[in-house]
Design a binder for these strands. Structure first.
Lengths: 335, 335
DNA sequence: TGCTATAATGGGAACGTTCCCATTATAGTG
DNA sequence: CACTATAATGGGAACGTTCCCATTATAGCA
């Protein structure tokens, strides 16, 4: 067993009771004389005492630990979001640990079980496969990082992908494109991805026929973007412009276009989504729909704190951050 | 307080003692009759009991939690390494949490304190600023992800960057280059980065003068790679080839070269290191020194398990994984 | 000065496990 | 069948906190 000093050792050295030490270590607004506090602090310093979070957590049922569940830390979108979350939560005394599920449903469920066993105070999660019911059953305050309507019992915060998709299509159609391909990600469960809904709505409103062969769904991942693009290029009448559901897919698509000996934007225009750093330095640099990643993290963290402190409104909130179009050099009028 | 069922509730329902329940939940090799075990398992199922890791950890001083400290989850190098670590450790019943310091020394130290308070069983760390002495004082088994000689009291595992640098230079000098620039990362503390040492050694062995103006040190980060490259291009007699300490820097350098209106490899050859996925799809694709990322993670995890179980040799180990050169299209003979 | 209100401190139980040790049930052996 | 070795089970203490409640010290006020 550890021979680390306990609160009792400190109490003995300081010549006070363990309760007093606990008061000094814990809440700073506890009633303890300045002189006594000094004695305790000196003893803590001298012994190198550190609070045992396990014991404290067992007693109080609060661990001041928050877990962030991500499907894919390799996507540069998330570190930015994580930064916002950490900045807010660490400022309030919480530690943020990251759980990377790698798109693996089983691993995600294992993390969920761990969050219960270890009594995490809260969760911020971009779900891969976990359902609303499972999250409710989990019993830990949670915020969903996605504007998914599948989570009625949680605050959800995300970027307005529907609106962002409209921005991208307005841009491409405004340039004169009529055959716009969509490389859509897969959404969890049976729901239709919001980008796809938006795509269909937009085309219908602008009286452009929706052709199924121009729509490809695939998992998020550069190689899948490559393959999906290949599929679109192999059509008898391939699209003149592409909107990809995120930048990772767009980079894959860009590569496929080049591999086919075509040029961007002369032969095909390409627009991505997220505005990860990498797409500003590809050749050509990519036009993309930017999301406010850092703010997303801050907002999610703020909502979570309110839930933990039971200072949140009864009704669950849906916070959509606006997207904006960043025009670079990958989009141009059709030739 | 939580109304979750405890081991005692299970014991009551199953009609046995809490000790017996503990035996069933814990070590599977404990002596308990099959019939009794069934009764307990049924009760657990019925009540939805889950072990409280806080209470258990308090008693045993083992939490089956490992923390992975990374400076920068945005670097695609790490997810690969993390995958290896997770695969090994989760297989042995450990949970892996990720702590992202974002190159922030203060945050790294906060994580270190957290690892003590929360009694993590082990640490795998690519250090930003934490010293050997601090890690020893931390008292938790740790493995260093880097072949740094600054950590004599720990097993270190990393790729042989010294050898990898030699591979890169053999390649470039073999192509006929004599003015090879080095974009070197910064190393922690006052030590000389191994890539720089290797660079100097190699040039001297090949009787090529070492010119300080061809050596630029900068933090790891794409924008720093860009700036460093700019600086090298502004020389009166710029290099004909560049070796960048990692692929992120190389991508930045590539961008700077293009921004200067020069071509790779016709005007300047460029070689990176790590072999992250992105450099296989840049234009041109980058020649790079590949590291065995997944194996790196597996090895570190294996070493850590041995330390935790006190099954490791007394002497600290230094495990260097070999690098190999991947030739792509960014390197060619000087014109 | 004496009395009360409040500030400051301490003792002990509780959180949910695990583990030591003691006890009882079962099997093995002559 | 008695006796012993071992298997199976249970009771209680301990891990290091926090919090309730009780007690004592101090300050405020007439």
């Amino acid at each position: 067993m550890s021979q680390r000093p306990t609160i009792i050792d400190v109490a003995r050295v300081a010549g006070v009771s363990k309760t007093t030490v606990s008061r000094v270590v814990g809440c700073k607004d506890a009633p303890v004389r300045t002189e006594t506090r000094q004695k305790v602090l000196r003893a803590i310093e001298q012994l190198g005492y550190e609070r045992n979070a396990l014991a404290g957590g067992l007693r109080t049922d609060r661990t001041y630990t928050i877990a962030l569940f991500l499907p894919d830390i390799a996507n540069p979108f998330w570190p930015e979001v994580a930064r916002g979350i950490q900045d807010v939560l660490e400022g309030e005394g919480y530690a943020v640990v990251l759980a990377n599920s790698d798109w693996d449903a089983k691993r995600e469920h294992k993390f969920l079980a761990m969050s219960r066993r270890n009594r995490f105070d809260g969760l911020i999660i971009n779900p891969v496969s976990v359902t609303n019911a499972e999250l409710v059953a989990n019993g830990i305050p949670a915020i969903i990082l996605s504007l998914d309507t599948d989570y009625p019992d949680f605050d959800v915060v995300g970027s307005d992908s529907y609106g962002g998709t409209t921005l991208a299509l307005e841009h491409l159609v405004g340039l004169g494109h009529r055959r716009v391909g969509l490389i859509s990600g897969l959404s969890r469960g049976s729901r239709q991805p919001s980008r796809l809904t938006s795509y269909v709505d937009f085309l219908q409103q602008h009286h452009i026929p929706v052709e199924n062969e121009l729509i490809v769904k695939c998992p998020y991942g550069q190689e899948h973007g490559w393959r999906s693009m290949k599929q679109l290029l192999d059509l008898d009448d391939p699209p003149t412009a592409i909107f990809a559901a995120n930048d990772i897919l767009a980079i894959g698509a860009l590569q496929a276009i080049r591999d086919a000996g075509l040029r961007v934007p002369q032969d095909i225009s390409l627009v991505g989504m997220d505005d990860i750093y990498a797409v500003s330095v590809t050749t050509p640099s990519l036009t993309t729909v930017a999301k406010e990643k850092y703010e997303l993290g801050c907002q999610a963290a703020t909502f979570l704190l309110e839930r933990i402190r039971e200072a949140a409104p009864e009704r669950f909130r849906r916070h959509a951050l606006p997207c904006r179009l960043i025009q670079r050099t990958s989009s141009a009028p059709p030739s």
